[in-house]
Nucleic acid binder design. Structure first.
Length: 200
DNA sequence: TTGTAGATACTCT
DNA sequence: GAGTATCTACAAA
C-alpha cells in the first residue's frame, strides 16, 4: 500500500501505473493512472490552492492523507486530488490523466463527445467525469467503498517529469517541475503552458 | 495536425 | 469584481 503521509512530490511517482476504481449504481469504472501533478502548500508552492493558507475550498487538502480533494474550476469542471502528508499539512496529487481499463461502456456514456477510448480520461476534468466523481465526493476515503486505489503491480518504468501544465504565475516555472507521467502513453495530455506564461 | 477563442460559475480579495 | 490546477469547436494548413 502507498504511504500517503509522505509529501505529494514523493507520492506522485508511486501513483503512476496504479489503478483507481469507483463503484456507482450505474456500474464500476477503473482507470490506470498515467499522468499526475504534485502540489504543496503554505507558501511553498505558488501554483497551489493552499499557497495562501487554509481556506474553505482547500480545507480537505489539510485533512487525512489518502482522501479525496475535489474542487470546481473554470465554471464547469471538477478536478480530483489525492491528499498527502499528515493531517494539518497541505499537500496533494492532482490526477491528470489515465487509461480506462474497466467499465469502458459506462465511461463512454459519460463522455459522449469523446471520439476514441484514449480520450476518455485524457485531462483532469475528463478523468473525473469518466470515473463519475462529483464535487460532493470531497473528503471521501479512497481506501474504502465506493472507491479503491491500488499501487502499480510492478514499479512503473519510463517515468518522466516536466513543468506543470496550465498553472499561472511562478508555479508554472522552474523549479516546480512536479508533473509526472509515463513516457510513451497515448493517454498523457500534451503539455500546454498557461496563456499568461505564453504571452510573457 | 496545430493554434485560437469562447463558455461557465465558484472562490477569494 | 476579477481570476481560475479546463474542454470543446472551429479554422487554417
Amino acid at each position: 500500500m502507498i504511504d500517503f503521509s509522505a509529501t505529494a512530490v514523493e507520492v506522485a511517482p508511486l501513483l503512476l501505473g496504479g489503478v483507481i476504481a469507483h463503484d456507482s449504481p450505474e456500474g464500476r469504472v477503473t482507470v490506470r493512472l498515467t499522468e499526475v501533478e504534485a502540489y504543496l502548500g503554505d507558501g511553498l508552492d505558488p501554483g497551489s490552492h493552499a499557497f495562501r493558507g487554509r481556506t474553505r475550498r482547500n480545507d480537505s487538502m489539510y485533512g487525512e492523507p489518502g482522501r479525496l480533494y475535489t474542487y470546481f474550476t473554470y465554471g464547469m469542471h471538477v478536478c480530483a486530488n489525492v491528499v498527502c502528508s499528515p493531517a494539518g499539512e497541505a499537500s496533494a496529487v492532482l490526477l491528470r490523466a489515465g487509461e480506462v481499463i474497466e467499465g469502458l461502456e459506462l465511461a463512454r456514456s459519460r463522455r459522449p463527445t469523446s471520439r476514441s477510448d484514449v480520450d476518455l480520461a485524457r485531462g483532469p476534468a475528463l478523468l473525473v467525469k469518466a470515473l463519475g466523481i462529483a464535487l460532493s465526493d470531497d473528503g471521501a476515503d479512497l481506501g474504502t467503498p465506493p472507491f479503491s486505489l491500488a499501487p502499480a503491480e510492478q514499479r512503473a518504468s519510463g517515468i518522466a517529469t516536466s513543468l506543470r501544465t496550465g498553472v499561472s504565475g511562478d508555479g508554472g516555472r522552474p523549479p516546480f517541475a512536479w508533473r509526472f507521467f509515463l513516457e510513451g502513453e497515448p493517454t498523457v495530455s500534451p503539455y500546454k503552458r498557461h496563456p499568461k506564461l505564453a504571452a510573457g
